[in-house]
Nucleic acid binder design. Structure first.
Length: 421
RNA sequence: GGAGGCAUGGCAGAGCGGUUGAAUGCACUGGUCUUGAAAACCAGCAAGGGUGCAAGCCCUUCAGAGGUUCGAAUCCUCUUGCCUCCGCCA
């Protein structure tokens, strides 16, 4: 959520910055509601002040045992007026809030300008570290041959887009989760959480999935709960409505979760295998930091996530997203993409974003700095990482001619085997 | 799922329907004292909005939403959360 004061006082700058993300945004309704609300509030406050002082008078007179009938007449009229004003104020402020929640975050000035993913910038790339001298199989073929993935049986029970891992496949999946979790815990200062997978609407509002993207999430109607599309939602909401003290910042949180996405509107895209699924596993990293530190924290977040790919001996590249390709809530974002030799495509496995104060305003997550002033924290998050595409890339990258797959060193302690065959 | 109890500031804990944004204690911050620290004493200490250069002034907020009343932390209704008991259950 953007600061209404910023919109009010720097309308042109805000609009210009927003247009880099989305050319179609108008702030007119918001400005209109804001000025109406402001003048109404001023009038209301005056009436309330009058009511307060007269009510106090009544109390004083009463304690002296004197009559207060004249004041009563005034108060009765005032009371009616105030009630009408309050009602109007409530309507205006909820309309304003609703409108504000629909406005995306402003891209950071360092974001390359652009319209879509074609304008993204490749920051770094390492590829073709391995020469294959045999015909490659893709992960679906490998998964079937090794009897570690079964999409048909999964579809039988849940429909398409739900993976079923079997035997060493289940072991590999679990090893990936444990390896990534342990790596971040051991090497960086993260606190581990295991969060709920179902959250209230207001939690999804904090992180920005609601109100605009309700179609992307699974919703349990009976209880009005949403299945989390990422642990970002639950991890970020740990501090909803909190005022943290500056000496407890930065806070680094980590959590594994299953992630659920309807992927509405993406039918026909990446439908095969593990590339786009409705349920997947992810280790998520979330940071709560002081505003002045958030960009260096973004850099370290990208590094932390990429280290995993190095250790898994996978080819990957780092992409800096252009303004037009940024998500709704992000001010700046780097994606990590892993190379899939079977698909001959780059696959997004992590998205590391700085949301600045966009989420913290929505969730009212603040901190008190050393001067005693209260301000919104900056939040960041990054996948560290999402498993299915890694699973696929790993099978394809480390496959041998006979269809067996080498397990990289870092995973072996978690699996107890050095290859799947 | 059934029955009951509770919900106040960072925490603990007062609070008759009327000068209560809220006593008190702890914590915290500043000061005095001390070589330093502790103790003691003094002072400050909620958030949001408006207005003002500022000091300040005004408004709102006692889980949330409604209601009664000229006036609600205080009375009523609903919702949510926590606790206790019963049922069910991995």
């Amino acid at each position: 959520m953007l600061d209404i004061k910023k919109i009010r006082n720097n309308t042109d700058d805000v609009l210009k910055a927003l247009s880099k993300k989305d050319n179609d945004i108008s702030l007119n309704d918001i400005l209109d509601l804001d000025s109406k609300l402001k003048s109404l509030t001023t009038k209301l406050n005056e009436l309330q002040a009058e009511q307060n002082s007269k009510s106090k008078e009544v109390g004083q007179l009463k304690s002296k045992g004197e009559s207060s009938d004249d004041i009563f007449k005034d108060l009765k009229v005032l009371s009616e007026k105030i009630k009408a004003f309050e009602k109007e104020q409530k309507e205006l402020s909820s309309a304003l809030k609703k409108a504000l929640l629909e406005i995306p975050n402003i891209p950071h000035s360092s974001c390359p300008e652009g319209v879509n993913e074609k304008d993204n910038i490749v920051v770094s790339e390492n590829k073709n570290t391995r020469d294959f001298n045999f015909p490659l199989k893709d992960h679906i073929e490998l998964g079937e041959k090794l009897d570690i993935l079964d999409f048909e049986v999964a579809a039988k029970m849940s429909g398409s887009g739900f993976p079923l891992y079997k035997g060493n496949g289940a072991l590999l999946e679990r090893a990936l989760i444990n390896f990534m979790t342990d790596y971040h815990l051991k090497n960086f200062d993260y606190t581990e959480f295991f969060t709920p997978f179902l959250v209230k609407p207001e939690s999804a509002l904090t992180t920005g999935q609601l109100p605009k993207f309700s179609e992307d999430m699974y919703h349990i109607e009976k209880d009005d709960l949403y299945l989390i599309p990422t642990a970002e939602v639950s991890l970020t909401n740990i501090h909803k409505d909190d005022i943290l003290s500056s000496n407890e910042l930065p806070k680094y949180y980590l959590g594994y979760s299953a992630c659920f996405r309807r992927e509405a509107g993406s039918y026909g895209k990446d439908t095969r295998g593990l590339l786009r699924v409705h349920q997947f596993n992810k280790v998520e990293l979330v940071k709560f930091v002081e505003p002045t530190k958030s960009y260096e924290e973004l850099d370290s977040l990208v590094n932390q996530a990429s280290n995993i790919l190095d250790l898994l001996e996978l080819d990957y590249r780092v992409i800096e997203l252009c303004s037009g390709d940024l998500s709704f809530a992000a001010a700046k974002c780097f994606d990590l993409e892993v190379w899939s030799p079977g698909e001959e495509k780059w696959l997004e496995v992590s998205s590391c974003s700085n949301f600045e104060d966009f989420q913290s305003r929505r969730g009212n997550i603040r901190f008190k700095n050393s001067n005693g002033e209260i301000d919104f924290v900056h939040t960041l998050n990054g996948s560290g990482l999402a498993t299915p595409r890694i699973f696929a890339a790993l099978l394809e990258t480390h496959q041998n001619e006979d269809g067996s797959v080498r397990i990289p060193q870092c995973l072996q302690p978690f699996m107890g085997i050095s290859e799947i065959k």
